[in-house]
Computed example of a mutant assay.
Amino acid sequence: MQLQQTPVKFSAAQKVVVWEAFDVADPMVTAAGKLYEKTLTADERIPWMWIEQSVQDRTKSKPRPGGWSRHLILAAPEGRQDDPDALAGYVYGALLPGYGGYLCYVGVAESARRMGVGGRLYDQFFKVLRVAAGELGESLPFVVWESHRPDPTAPAADWENWTARTRLFDRVGGLWVDGVDFLSPNFAFDEEDDDAPPVPLQLFIKPMDVPEAAFTPERLRDVVVGGLHRQVYRNEPGSPLYDRTLPPGCEPRLRPARAAGVRKSERGELV
């Protein structure tokens, strides 16, 4: 689905407004759904209706004890917050009680890129999750997110976009979990299709209330399998995605996010 959008003319001094969506009937939420489908491939995204449902649940039902606190945050130029054609970006994710923050999806309209929109969305998401954790009387140890690195043979433009993305992760304080190819389900296929190829993703963490030095290989393994695989994707030891994500001998470590943007050949050589 293509987003039909009047180009948003930004200037370096123009203010970008960010806010949380609470009304699923808001045309800006509909515009976010169109941008979501435009900026993510089918194998990476869940049905948008699931995200709409989480927006609706924020206002129409009480959160379940121990349940996720989900948030959809939108961005637009000041004065155009009610104009779907001016939607500049969105971010969606959740606080997982007892675990940490999980940033699921983020997208910026092409006409609004390189104007600081992505950074504003990340920063606001971190603030919202810190408040959500405080309401539960919990700390916020970290926020984790995934991103799809291009295939080594992908066009140069794909790698340029990936490099720009990892630089953004750097600017917002994200660190790359080197040594892990996180294998997630392929949402372009039926979830019961055993032949569906998994989607390999790179993981990034922003330490919040826990210092970077505390993320030892053991703790990173727990973040990956104890949190993402078990709590988010419902995978247990013995499942192919779980076991192949952290094979024997895997020693994950944190590195600057920009290091993930380096292009390598299929033989592991820099190109």
Rank of each mutant, 00 (worst) to 15 (best):
G101V: 01
G101Q: 05
Y102R: 09
Y105C: 04
V106T: 09
V108C: 07
S111D: 15
S111V: 12
A112I: 09
A112Q: 10
A112P: 06
R114H: 09
R114T: 08
G118D: 03
G118V: 01
R120F: 00
Y122P: 02
D123R: 15
D123C: 07
Q124C: 10
K127S: 14
K127M: 10
K127F: 08
V128M: 08
A132F: 05
A132H: 11
E135V: 11
F142Q: 07
W145M: 11
W145E: 08
W145T: 14
E146I: 02
E146H: 09
H148E: 15
R149T: 09
P150T: 13
D151L: 13
D151R: 12
D151G: 07
P152T: 06
T153P: 01
A154E: 01
A157M: 12
W159Y: 08
W159I: 05
E160G: 00
E160K: 10
N161I: 06
T163S: 12
R167F: 10
L168D: 02
L168G: 09
F169H: 05
F169Q: 05
D170M: 10
R171H: 15
V172D: 03
L175H: 15
L175K: 13
L175M: 15
V177T: 08
V177I: 15
V177W: 00
F182K: 00
F182Y: 10
F182A: 04
S184Q: 04
F189A: 06
E191S: 14
E192Q: 15
E192H: 15
E192S: 15
D193F: 11
D193T: 11
D194I: 14
D195L: 12
A196N: 11
A196W: 07
A196Q: 11
A196R: 03
P198M: 09
P198K: 03
V199R: 04
V199G: 06
V199H: 03
V199C: 13
P200M: 02
P200S: 05
L201T: 09
L201R: 11
L203I: 12
L203T: 02
F204N: 02
F204D: 03
F204I: 12
I205S: 00
I205E: 03
P207Q: 04
D209H: 00
V210F: 06
V210N: 01
